[in-house]
């Protein structure tokens, strides 16, 4: 009777989830008790909106990281999508829906390019996506001349500023996307393959998984989600600017890692990433509500990331050692049985 809960608690993911939830709640209620202005409706709305675009990017990043990859181009895809949808509507006279569709196709194409280059040339994803990041950043600057693009219709602004049942549209999108992608990752055969690839690409390939195809699709998904975030950000701010979302890729990666994903691939969940996003949003909010110099925010986020990764690594090593011990004892049992 005592074995099952103990094993459950030993589980890496559960330990990290419980830890994250506890620390997040401690921070939230601790700062509410100290400063009294955290659990207000206005502050909670701002808290949620503060990380929502990075959160949407983090959902796509989760898939990439599970496969053992990384996509640091998401921030520039985010800004590019902002600019493209804005230019299509404001300067080229596109209606909202076609402008959004063209933008999403363009974002997915960038993701496809990332994926193709990664699988075709077998170059580390960090290098390929860094190249895309820098190239797109230059493109964003060049096509806007450093200026912002604005002048959207109210219908488009609704995508970033509107509310449905009192909840901001981007938050609803994030929640919906997290739910759908979380279920797919947990249940769907295609998405289960990501864990095989992240656990060992060669073994996955030998097991019949079309690794190249899966990887390309995952980078397309990551870029498409960054594109969605960019479109909603343009609507939220009423303007598209080349510098929007600067360093968002690092926040997205941090959220995934804090959420318990192994940065080397093979593990990670959408639920963990959502917790990582909420944790980062709460810590940032705590800094503002307490009027602490926000420079310290990066210090704390960085330390949290380090601790989360080290904790995950430590428990994974311990589990691997336990597994080895279990194998050894089984082998001992087998050899003892064969002797008798």
């Amino acid at each position: 009777m005592h074995v099952a809960p103990r094993r459950l608690f030993e589980n890496v993911i559960v330990v990290q989830y419980i830890g994250l939830v506890c620390v997040t709640l401690l921070t939230l209620f601790g700062f509410q008790a100290a400063f009294g202005n955290v659990l207000t409706r206005a502050n909670l709305e701002v808290l949620a909106m503060n990380m929502v675009f990075e959160g949407i990017m983090a959902l796509g990043m989760t898939f990439v990281i599970i496969t053992g990859g990384i996509d640091i181009s998401v921030a520039s895809v985010f800004a590019f999508s902002e600019i493209l949808v804005a230019k299509l509507m404001v300067q080229a006279g596109f209606a909202i829906v076609p402008a959004i569709l063209v933008t999403l196709v363009a974002a997915a194409a960038i993701g496809a390019l990332n994926g193709v280059l990664i699988v075709l040339f077998r170059v580390h994803p960090l290098i390929i996506t860094m190249g895309t990041l820098l190239t797109l950043r230059g493109v964003n600057l060049a096509i806007t001349d450093g200026h912002s693009v604005s002048g959207f219709s109210d219908a488009f602004l609704f995508l970033g500023q509107g509310k449905i049942l009192g909840i901001n549209v981007p938050i609803l999108f994030f929640a919906g996307a997290a739910l759908v992608l979380g279920v797919l990752l947990g249940q769907h055969r295609f998405f289960r393959q990501l864990y095989f690839i992240g656990g060992g690409e060669r073994a996955a390939r030998l097991s019949g998984v079309n690794v190249s195809r899966v990887k390309i699709i995952i980078y397309m998904l990551s870029a498409s989600l960054a594109g969605c975030a960019g479109i909603m950000a343009a609507a939220k701010y009423g303007a598209a600017h080349w510098a929007h979302g600067n360093l968002a890729e690092l926040k997205a990666i941090a959220a995934v890692a804090i959420g318990g994903a192994n940065i080397n691939g093979g593990s990670g969940t959408i639920g963990g990433t959502v917790l990582g996003v909420i944790f980062l949003a709460v810590v940032h909010n705590a800094f503002v509500t307490s009027a602490v110099n926000t420079f310290w925010y990066d210090v704390v986020s960085g330390m949290m990331l380090l601790i989360a990764v080290l904790l995950s690594r430590f428990i994974a090593l311990r589990n691997a050692r336990a597994l080895l011990g279990l194998k050894q004892s089984k082998m001992d049992q087998l050899s003892a049985t064969s002797k008798t």
Binding site: L26, T27, F35, A291, V300, L311, F314
Partner: peptide, 25 residues
Amino acid sequence: TSRLAFVALAATIGLAVGASAPSNA
């Protein structure tokens, strides 16, 4: 050790934020 690590995690936030927080409660 896991529990200790979790406590360290919570303490880090508390220390880092609390140490430099002005007492304007």
